[in-house]
Simulated assay, not measured.
Amino acid sequence: MLRSLLGKTLGFVGYTVQYGCIAHCTFEYVGEFVICSGPSMEPTIVNQDIVFSERMSRHLCKIQTGDIVIAKSPFDPNMNLCKRVIGLEGDKICTSGPSDVFKSHTYVPKGHVWLEGDNLRNSTDSRSYGPVPYALIRGRVCLKLWPLHSFGTLSESPTRRITETHHDSD
């Protein structure tokens, strides 16, 4: 009886470890569900929207200008950001403060991206903390799941903030 109980327990532990490994690999390399909070991506993504963030684009270096990404905060590794990619390495970015008083141009350095929220007046983003290392990107948001009435792919930037790009080959 003890042998049978031990066998069942070890079998259960084995299945638990296997399914845990499968779940971990799925969330790490395929994608994950994310509940977004805060106003920085309004009106595209509002507080408590649920999105699906796929990881394959990040691993294949296929993140493009205009994509919405989930990234680790450059200042708090326990916090994730949801922002739009405005510029890739080598791109020239025209930046402005929250009051739109000053404007300057900056080039995105190698291995970095420029991230901004769609709600420019209520977003802490690259305008505050500068270019973000590509390695901090966790995934590309490809689908809004909740609320159901807005289910589907995400729209382009409502601010049409994506402007001039400049690459070394130009």
Results as ranks from 00 to 15, higher is better:
1 M>Y: 02
4 S>G: 03
4 S>P: 00
6 L>P: 03
7 G>V: 00
7 G>C: 01
9 T>F: 00
20 G>T: 14
24 H>N: 11
27 F>K: 14
33 F>C: 06
36 C>T: 10
40 S>N: 12
44 T>A: 06
44 T>M: 02
46 V>S: 05
46 V>R: 14
53 S>K: 06
55 R>H: 15
60 L>I: 12
60 L>V: 07
65 T>H: 06
65 T>F: 04
68 I>F: 01
72 K>L: 13
72 K>I: 14
73 S>D: 10
74 P>D: 05
74 P>L: 05
74 P>I: 09
84 R>M: 01
84 R>P: 00
88 L>T: 08
89 E>P: 10
93 I>T: 02
94 C>I: 04
99 S>D: 15
101 V>Q: 08
109 P>G: 10
111 G>L: 10
111 G>P: 06
113 V>E: 03
114 W>V: 07
119 N>H: 14
121 R>A: 09
125 D>M: 07
127 R>V: 02
132 V>C: 04
133 P>D: 07
136 L>K: 07
137 I>P: 11
137 I>L: 15
138 R>H: 03
142 C>F: 13
146 W>F: 15
148 L>D: 03
150 S>M: 11
152 G>H: 13
154 L>D: 04
158 P>C: 07
159 T>D: 01
161 R>C: 13
161 R>Q: 11
162 I>S: 15
163 T>F: 00
163 T>E: 04
163 T>C: 10
164 E>L: 14
165 T>Y: 09
165 T>V: 11
167 H>A: 10
168 D>G: 02
